[in-house]
Design a protein around this nucleic acid. Structure first.
Length: 458
RNA sequence: GCCCUCAUCGUCUAGCGGCUAGGACGGGGCCCUCUCAAGGCCCAAACAGGGGUUCAAUUCCCCUUGAGGGCGCCA
């Protein structure tokens, strides 16, 4: 019996769908040596999508063998980012599984065992204190699920154990894929040329070669080359901090290298899971476009239930110490956010948009003021409005609209003659949400006080 | 330098021998309008070049060019 069949089989989660087909097992294998970036997120996403599409298992394996560059902080960042994006893993750190441990730093005994097998095969030799693998020199052919047939011949022997005793990436990566029974290796195209090393190792270890699927890379939006951690807009963490909606980012990422083949772009994740397949993945690299991401984010924001928007907005504002001067009443905050949700393009635009709702010390925009006073008699109009507002019904936008229209008609003015000065008086700016909603949410007392103050000082 | 991959509007993409080459972002214009957004309508914008194959090439093959990646005792 081949030795790899001795590796324990999963005792549950196994027979979910097609009992005759081996279960799909894919893995995302990041190394905690830097920030978690968009490219990594997309690789994780495609693995996750394929697992969910096939009813397979999504494994998280942490490649933390590079001691010098590892950090606990980066490790947590990986967990947090994956969770934020909703890419839950079935096996891995914090999830368990029958093929652990899932941190490479804890798998020394596994590597020692496999190294023994490789040594026994006579394919290794020592040189300069390091252990080298003797390649076969035969052409290595893979049938890539995305690119089709790819052939490459490895040219020289390579190190599998450093002189300090630590096994290198190519070796541990293959060993882990074997021992974790990974069926499909979905990874970035930057690994395509390395695949010949890996298939050499699989063969030398007598293990079946997984299906490979090399996905295109994400190129930086400006300048040459692939996106890296240092590029503008590259960090998942940054989008999280900026209040982007994870479902929007995920949707955007789905479309970077894959499409549903019709003209739809905003798709529920379940629909992507249903349609996603490896042959449908593009073969060419894609340039990252933050404008398109921003648009997707806006679409999701505007369609989001107000209750959820309130939660996200509150968390975001709290995170920025926005209410240092005191937390507003829950109902008032809800009204403000509900009023402004359709007016902003992103959660992060909120702070600059809602300031006057939470304090009296807002500045008056000189340009807006100039425009208001450019024609007509805004002070007279404000005086008329002030008088009418004292007895007005502030419970609905419609009631306020009716009142202003009646006022305009009575004085032979346009509604704009009231609206523009009043907006400036109560908010200090010409930009804002629906005027009637603005009055309604601010409430009679604030509105009257602010208009009065404006008339006194203007 | 050697090896691998890729090639449709500025960008993301649809197309899998015969299409006015479609959609989206971004850009421009118009409309709507209480501002700003949003929304609606319209416009500009692409098959890298050259050879083949074929009655017919964006589509298949080859070359060139361009883009990206790999060639570490990094992952």
């Amino acid at each position: 019996m081949p030795w790899f069949l001795l590796v324990p089989r999963p005792n549950h989660k196994q027979q979910t769908k097609a009992p005759l087909m081996p279960q799909v097992r894919v893995r995302f294998a990041p190394s905690p040596t830097g920030f978690f970036h968009i490219g990594s997120a997309r690789t994780a996403l495609f693995n996750w999508l394929y697992a969910r599409h096939t009813g397979g298992v999504f494994i998280l394996r942490v490649e933390d063998t590079d001691q010098a560059r590892n950090s606990e902080e980066f490790l947590n960042l990986i967990y947090n980012s994956l969770r934020w994006l909703g890419l839950n893993w079935d096996e891995g750190p914090q999830a368990g599984g029958d093929f652990g441990p899932y941190l490479q730093s804890e798998r020394a005994s596994v590597y020692a065992e496999f190294l023994g097998r490789l040594k026994a095969s006579g394919r290794t030799y020592e040189k300069d204190g390091a252990l080298f693998f003797r390649i076969s020199g035969e052409p290595q052919v893979i049938e890539d699920a995305i690119r089709g047939r790819v052939e490459r011949t490895e040219e020289k022997d390579f190190v599998i154990v450093r002189s300090d005793g630590k096994p290198v990436f190519h070796f541990v990566n293959v060993v882990d894929d074997i021992s974790m029974r990974v069926s499909h290796v979905i990874r970035g195209e930057d690994h395509l040329s390395n695949t010949s090393k890996h298939t050499e190792l699989f063969k030398a270890l007598g293990a079946p070669i997984p299906v490979y699927a090399h996905i295109p890379l994400i190129l930086k939006q400006n300048g040459p080359g692939k996106m890296s951690k240092r590029d503008q807009g590259a960090l998942v963490e940054e989008y999280q901090k900026r209040g982007f909606l994870p479902e929007a980012l995920v949707n955007f990422l789905c479309l970077l290298g894959w499409s549903p083949k019709d003209d739809r772009e905003k798709l529920p994740l379940e629909e992507v899971v249903r349609l996603f397949d490896l042959p449908g993945v593009n073969q060419s690299n894609a340039r990252f476009d933050e404008k398109k991401l921003a648009h997707m984010n806006m679409v999701y924001l505007h369609e989001m239930a107000p209750e959820r928007c309130l939660v996200l907005a509150r968390d975001f504002l709290l995170g920025r110490s926005y209410f240092a001067g005191g937390m507003p009443a829950e109902a008032y905050l809800r009204d403000v956010i509900a009023l402004c949700q359709p007016k902003v393009r992103a959660i992060e635009d909120l702070p600059g948009f809602i300031g006057y709702f939470f304090g009296e010390d807002f500045a008056t925009d000189p340009k807006a003021r100039e425009k208001v006073f450019a024609k007509g008699d805004p002070k007279a109009r404000l005086g008329e409005l002030l008088a009418a507002l004292a007895l007005a019904d502030f419970s609905s936008d419609a009631a306020l609209e009716t009142l202003v229209k009646a006022l305009a008609e009575e004085h032979g003015a346009a509604t704009g003659d009231y609206i523009h000065p009043a907006r400036l008086a109560v908010s200090g700016t010409a930009v804002g949400p629906s005027f009637y909603g603005l009055l309604r949410v601010l409430g009679r007392d604030r509105v009257i006080r602010r208009i009065g103050r404006f008339l006194a000082t203007a």
